[in-house]
Simulated assay, not measured.
Amino acid sequence: MPHQPDQTKTDTHPSAFSRTWGYLNENVRPSGLAELELLILTFCIGLQDAISFPDFHCFASNQTGNTVFLVLAIVLPEANGDMFFTANIGIALGFFLAAAWLTGQLGHIIGARRRGWLVLCNFIQTCLVFTAAALQYIYRSPTTGELVLDGAQAPSTLWAIGLLATAAGSQVVQSRSLGMTEITTAMATAAWVDLMIDPNLFVLRNRSRNRRIGFLTTLVLGTLTGAFIFRRIGSPAALVISGAGKLLVTVMFMFNSAEKPKVECPEDSA
């Protein structure tokens, strides 16, 4: 009789789809590359905040300042339109918190360090920043470069604030998931304090101190760069550069090393 192929044997080589799916579901581990990615995101946030206050009279990511202004708006409503714009502050803080809540809660379900989740979040944040840049380009005078349609109180401005704050809130939550809390990518107060009180501040090898210094330095450089671009070219260009930086990090997440699976020790036989 002719030889019949063994139907019980199955192909042990995974398909391209299953390999890709497995790769996207790996947990990214804290590493030097992850530090670099967070510093790039910090630079991008510096660009955004450098243009958000002059344009919008609020911060897109620094919610400490927005919280203080919101309280002042409640106590001193007559200062609205002079010292600050209450609607802008409310939009920035509200969208930031909503994005942080959504990103954090979904991260608990999906896996905050999963490569695919990190890539997806960063891609969405990138799209939000580019959309805000487009709004800024559209609603600016081609001759003066100034905001038109009631300037800082225009509907387009509120949309731009909401988009940038949403991207920032999601980014901050995402940065915390990588386990390097010294690089928050946005808020500097805690980093300054933790740096000053570090008992090993002057020790040669101190990774936490180095991360904080790198974060603060990058935030300052991003803000200085954003201010320079704002003065010479205009805020839309700063947002485009910020979006490009976030897009770069989105691609870079595909090359991070993954956490090794934990090997369970076999139980001792009775």
Rank of each mutant, 00 (worst) to 15 (best):
L118P: 08
V119N: 10
L120M: 15
L120P: 02
L120H: 08
L120E: 10
L120K: 10
N122I: 01
F123V: 11
F123P: 05
F123T: 12
I124R: 06
I124V: 14
I124D: 05
Q125N: 13
Q125W: 02
Q125G: 14
T126S: 15
T126I: 02
C127D: 05
C127P: 05
C127E: 10
L128D: 00
L128H: 02
L128N: 01
L128V: 01
F130K: 10
F130P: 14
F130S: 11
F130T: 13
T131F: 15
A132I: 03
A132K: 11
A133H: 08
A133Y: 06
A133M: 10
A133T: 03
A133V: 12
L135Y: 06
Q136I: 00
Y137T: 12
I138N: 14
I138E: 15
Y139P: 00
R140V: 03
P142Q: 11
P142D: 15
P142K: 14
P142H: 13
T143Q: 11
T143N: 09
T143A: 07
T143G: 13
T144M: 02
T144I: 03
T144F: 00
G145H: 06
G145T: 10
G145I: 08
G145F: 07
E146M: 12
E146W: 08
E146H: 10
D150M: 12
D150S: 12
D150G: 14
D150L: 11
G151F: 00
G151D: 01
A152D: 04
A152F: 07
A152S: 15
A154F: 00
A154Q: 05
A154I: 07
P155R: 06
S156Y: 05
S156R: 00
S156Q: 03
S156T: 01
S156K: 00
T157G: 13
T157E: 05
L158T: 02
L158H: 09
L158P: 09
W159F: 10
W159M: 13
A160D: 03
I161A: 02
I161E: 06
G162K: 06
G162N: 04
L164V: 02
L164D: 00
L164S: 10
L164M: 08
L164H: 04
A165Q: 05
A165C: 08
A165R: 04
T166L: 15
T166H: 11
